[in-house]
Write a protein that binds this DNA or RNA. Structure first.
Lengths: 319, 319
DNA sequence: GGTGACCGCGCGAACGTTCGCCCAACCGGC
DNA sequence: GCCGGTTGGGCGAACGTTCGCGCGGTCACC
């Protein structure tokens, strides 16, 4: 009755009841309500070990959007390596969440999680779910690679290396396709030696960059797959005595808050993580309310942010 | 019965029941159980807008520790500025969480949230709660400031500036006390011009650093209150034509994963955020189970990690 | 003025557990 | 052999809602 539903009761009685309830500090018991309504008003969020700033930006946006819609958010973090994914999802399902948002690349190779998401609960994923049938939302990753690479090409670079995330990830492959497409349009031959796999961490990226610059010392530009790794790239480039921006141009992906303040400031393709989070919640709400949703990936546009690391400003003395 | 409780039933009957339950895929309904047990097996986590890497490291550790104990975690993120704190806490309380962990500096100045935490639910906070009576856990922040400053002093620096978080935060005041204590022990006079307030962001820290170096150009060392701001400090120092490490030594706090890969690599006082998260859950579990817990702040030790930004290695060419 | 229809409201079942209480049966001791 | 104690097991209440159904009263129309 007190949930705003249309109960057939005279307006003044309703007002009286509400007044009394208020004065008594009455708060409806969510648990009892959930029991009879068979819905909990709770969303599950499964996130990969969110030390990753990008994932945590997404998570915050998801929680905020969910709360605006009256949902609470139950989180589960997946270990970086390890397959507790199914356990986490099962935990969420047992808690009777109304839907699940997955922001964990691990799901790409976890058929057990995929089955759970497909069969037991409305879900939206940031990553491809094996077997499909789960709506996917994300950014236009091919465009990301293309934009970054095109920009470097337009500055006259011919030897453009790339430090990527793990190849087995779709994001990485999409960005690589964009990178290669841009090269081909410019008449440049893709070269395997210029592509080095890393692990999303600054340390891994630094090692990868050293490898790249050893294999192809003539490299004058690097496209790196996220801002955290970019930190490692900048460090490694400087470690070889080269200057970032002038000797080696760097363009990254994500546009985290710190990107602007790296030395030199980082050119990067902005990925709209907060907006993606909001859209994910919106999509999930539709799916929960029974509206059929397309399982065709919903891709949000990305945007190149030009700063100093790509050599736009060769004069960096004045910051 | 299927919850492992001690029901007086013959062993073989129990085994039979479990077997049948298993074969039927029976999963006890958490909601109904919560209703009668008056406990949900859920913990609430209120986090400040966790774009802050430190908070998100803490959050991940909390969730992991909680899950190990069989708890699920409901999160609420507080807006950076804005007092929706009470709303978030109320939401958690209405969802009948068994306890709340607060990792949001905002609670320091929110008496409404403080009252809720005190009166309605077992709680543990990372920050001082006005009015007390809520167990606080954290790191030895005074020690943090002292360690960093002492190290700079031991390198012969006499003009040591500091770029801080907002003064109204206890963490900041504790660290400042440690900084001043170290100066005094070394016979150095604290100087107001050397202390500049910032807002935890790289951008704010960069501006603060410019201000500091304008006011006191002879500054040869900077103690900055977290790694995110350190990025801004490095950028601003470089922007004035000074070299970090050789001209201006920098020591920070936190030791985030990227600290090692900044250029130059960042000396920083490690704050054990993951361990803090685990201890917080442990403390909360005790508090929930009725064990009286001390409200005396539980302080974990910190550790200075020496890298290049404090000038330990003057030769940085070989990284 | 009487009858019918509609509207406001109250009562009770159901959601799926947990847990206490009672009953029955078996065993042992007197 | 009978009685008491102990143990295994089943039945039903309670947790706090939601929602359907039915009843009673009032108003309007004939």
């Amino acid at each position: 009755m007190l949930n705003g539903g249309s109960v057939r009761v005279s307006p003044e009685t309703a007002a009286r009841i509400v007044a009394v309830a208020e004065s008594l500090g009455y708060r409806p018991n969510t648990i009892a309500r959930s029991l009879v309504r068979q819905t909990t008003g709770t969303l599950g969020l499964i996130a990969s070990d969110a030390t990753d700033v990008a994932i945590s930006q997404f998570s915050v946006a998801v929680e905020r959007a969910a709360r605006r819609l009256g949902y609470a958010v139950l989180v589960g973090h997946l270990a970086a390596e390890g397959d507790d994914g199914a356990d986490v999802v099962r935990m969420l399902i047992e808690r009777r969440v109304d839907g699940v948002i997955a922001a964990a690349p691990q799901v790409e190779e976890d058929p057990e999680v995929a089955d759970l998401l497909r069969a037991y609960v409305p879900a939206v994923s940031l990553h491809h779910v094996p077997g499909g049938q789960v709506p996917v939302i994300g950014s236009n990753q091919g465009e990301t690679g293309r934009l970054a690479t095109e920009h470097l090409i337009s500055h006259g670079h011919r030897r453009i290396g790339t430090v990527t995330g793990p190849f087995r990830r779709r994001v990485v492959r999409s960005r690589l396709r964009g990178y290669e497409a841009a090269l081909q349009v410019a008449g440049l031959e893709p070269d395997e030696d210029l592509v080095v796999e890393a692990d999303w961490t600054p340390g891994g990226a630094a090692a990868a960059t050293h490898l790249l610059l050893t294999r192809v010392p003539e490299t004058t530009a690097i496209f790196v797959h996220n801002d955290a790794m970019a930190i490692g790239v900048l460090s490694a480039v400087a470690g070889t005595g080269r200057r970032v921006g002038t000797d080696v141009a760097v363009v990254s992906c994500d546009d985290m808050p710190f990107a602007e303040y790296l030395t030199p400031s980082l050119s990067t393709v902005r990925v709209p993580l907060a907006e993606t989070g909001e859209r994910a919640v919106e999509l999930l709400r539709q799916s929960i309310s029974g509206t059929p949703v397309t399982t065709e990936p919903l891709l949000l546009p990305v945007e190149l942010i030009v700063r100093d690391s790509c050599g736009e400003e060769t004069e960096q003395e004045e910051e």
